[in-house]
């Protein structure tokens, strides 16, 4: 980051910022891997209270569509930034933020239904415990991603996403792809296999 001779691998995978982001994402994989392993271990262990069949598959599919779409838009945004097309970057980036926010809205609606109609909270039974933990931590990561995107957007609009900062958008897009990828696993395990 501070020695000139490293400029030559600016576009390679051994660039320190990219390596750092990748290793951070590996640690996140270990984190979500643990949560999901616990979820799988507890599938079918619920004896009392609401069971996984109270989950709404259409809502989950709607959320999935938003997230998958956002993975595409964030890719287009990053591409536009590399081609030095700031207008397109801002557009796609903003659209990604909107898609991400829409996903959170869908989750909020689903949770409201679960709590009010089915009386399912984290303390109700083992299903509630594991479900809210897994989906909640995913949503928390998504929120952090949205925050990071807003920061990048702010930096870009004020002309400070240049020089050594230019890689920031790419790294945030990697994080976003990761959060989307985690959702695919959550969706498969919680809504398809576990339901």
């Amino acid at each position: 980051m501070n020695s000139s001779h490293h400029a030559e691998h600016a576009n390679s995978l051994t660039e320190p910022h990219r390596v750092g982001m990748l290793s951070f994402l590996v640690s996140e994989v270990a984190f979500f891997g643990t949560l999901l392993a616990v979820y799988i271990a507890y599938i079918g262990q619920t004896t009392t209270g609401p069971k996984p069949d109270v989950l709404s598959l259409p809502l989950a599919i709607l959320g999935t569509v938003f997230l998958v779409a956002s993975s595409f838009t964030v890719h287009f945004a990053d591409h536009a930034l590399k081609l030095a097309k700031p207008f397109w970057f801002r557009g796609w980036w903003l659209l990604t933020i909107i898609f991400g926010a829409m996903f959170l809205v869908v989750t909020a609606i689903e949770w409201k239904g679960l709590i009010e109609e089915h009386g399912l909270t984290i303390a109700t039974n083992i299903f509630g415990t594991t479900y809210y933990t897994v989906v909640g931590f995913h949503a928390a990561h998504l929120t952090v991603g949205l925050l990071a995107m807003l920061i990048i957007l702010g930096l870009e609009c004020s002309g400070q996403l240049t020089g050594k900062n230019a890689i920031g958008a790419e790294l945030v897009s990697w994080y976003w792809h990761f959060v989307d990828g985690v959702w695919i696993f959550v969706f498969t395990i919680v809504y398809l296999i576990g339901r």
Binding site: S23, F24, V26, S27, E28, A30, F31, G33, T34, L35, V38, I122, A123, N125, I126, T129, T130, T133
Partner: peptide, 25 residues
Amino acid sequence: IVLAIPPLSAALIMVLLDRHLGAHF
């Protein structure tokens, strides 16, 4: 560190959820 500490963090969070939000891990 990158592979082993996050599972500990996850487990510690579960302990805290059990203790403070009444979860059942």
